Simulated scan of single mutants.
Amino acid sequence: MSVRRPALAALLAVLLTGAGLALAGCAPTVSLEPAADANDPGCAEVSVRLPDAVAGQQKRVTDAQATGAWGSPTAVLLRCGVPPIGATTKPCVSVNGIDWVLMTDPAAKTIVYQTFGRTPATEVIIDHVQGVSDSSVLPEFASAIAVVKQTQKCLSTLDTDLTPTPAPTPSN
């Protein structure tokens, strides 16, 4: 039984077109610098729990330990093992049990959040130009970040006692 040339040519054209489309859909590896403590075992725990999609953006391959990237072009980046921050006056929000400190100007095109009260700390970088919002990104990381024990909570001005302490009275 022989295959006719036109049928074979059509089949080959379909296979080559499909392969071309599949390769065109592959995004190149995202090159990132690992954080200083990327080799912390907590980062390994975070890394294996990172979601396949964030804010509708598919996960991409990165070339650095304890990192993640989503979207093509990249809209969200994650690095675990950044130096933890201490007390700060920067805005802090709690999203699904994870405290995040806003490290950049909220009006910037690229926003950086960092976990608070967890070591190793994790930062998430969100490119607003790509059309993703903070509220669609941060909740996606809750289950991955939650494996790192929280030792401190963010406090807002509502959580602190702002009652002025009376000045001591002079004694005679």
Rank of each mutant, 00 (worst) to 15 (best):
V147R: 13
V82W: 08
L8E: 05
P41W: 04
V76F: 02
R5V: 13
Q65D: 12
A19S: 01
A75N: 02
V46M: 06
A19W: 05
T29W: 01
Q57A: 06
V93I: 14
D52K: 09
I126P: 03
V93Y: 13
I126V: 12
A38F: 04
K109S: 15
C92M: 10
I145A: 09
S133F: 05
A108M: 04
M1R: 06
S94R: 13
T119A: 12
V147D: 12
S47W: 00
D52C: 03
L8T: 08
S94T: 15
A36M: 09
Q150D: 15
L23A: 06
Q57M: 13
A55T: 01
T17W: 08
V147F: 11
D159M: 13
V46L: 03
P106A: 08
G131F: 10
K149Y: 10
A53I: 01
S156H: 12
S143Q: 14
A13G: 09
S31K: 05
V95D: 10
A35W: 05
W100Q: 05
A142H: 09
T104D: 12
T110S: 10
S2R: 10
T122S: 04
P51N: 07
Q114C: 04
E123D: 15
M1V: 10
S171C: 07
L78G: 01
L50N: 00
L77N: 03
L12P: 03
L8D: 06
N172L: 10
N39H: 11
A87R: 06
D63A: 07
S156F: 09
P28W: 04
A38N: 07
A53N: 08
G86K: 09
S171T: 14
D40R: 06
Q114R: 11
T169G: 15
K149C: 11
Q152D: 15
D105L: 07
A142K: 07
I98Y: 05
A146F: 11
T88N: 11
L21I: 00
A7F: 02
N172M: 07
A146R: 13
G117T: 04
P73T: 05
L102I: 05
A66W: 00
S136M: 12
A53G: 02
A13R: 01
G68E: 01
C43G: 07
A55K: 00
S47T: 06
I125D: 08
P170T: 08
S94F: 06
V137A: 07
L162T: 15
V147A: 15
R5D: 09
K149Q: 15
A9E: 07
P28T: 08
D134G: 12
V3K: 02
L158F: 15
G25E: 14
P51T: 04
N96Q: 14
V3I: 13
V14R: 00
A75Y: 05
A36G: 07
H128P: 11
A146Y: 08
V30Q: 03
D52W: 00
Q114N: 02
E45R: 11
D99N: 06
I111Q: 00
I111G: 00
P83F: 08
A24K: 04
A13C: 06
I145Y: 14
G18E: 03
K109Y: 07
E33N: 12
Q152T: 14
I85V: 10
A53K: 06
V147S: 15
V101Y: 04
T88E: 09
T160M: 15
P164V: 04
S31N: 08
P164T: 09
A75F: 00
P51M: 03
Q57Y: 10
K149T: 15
S171R: 07
A121G: 05
G20V: 10
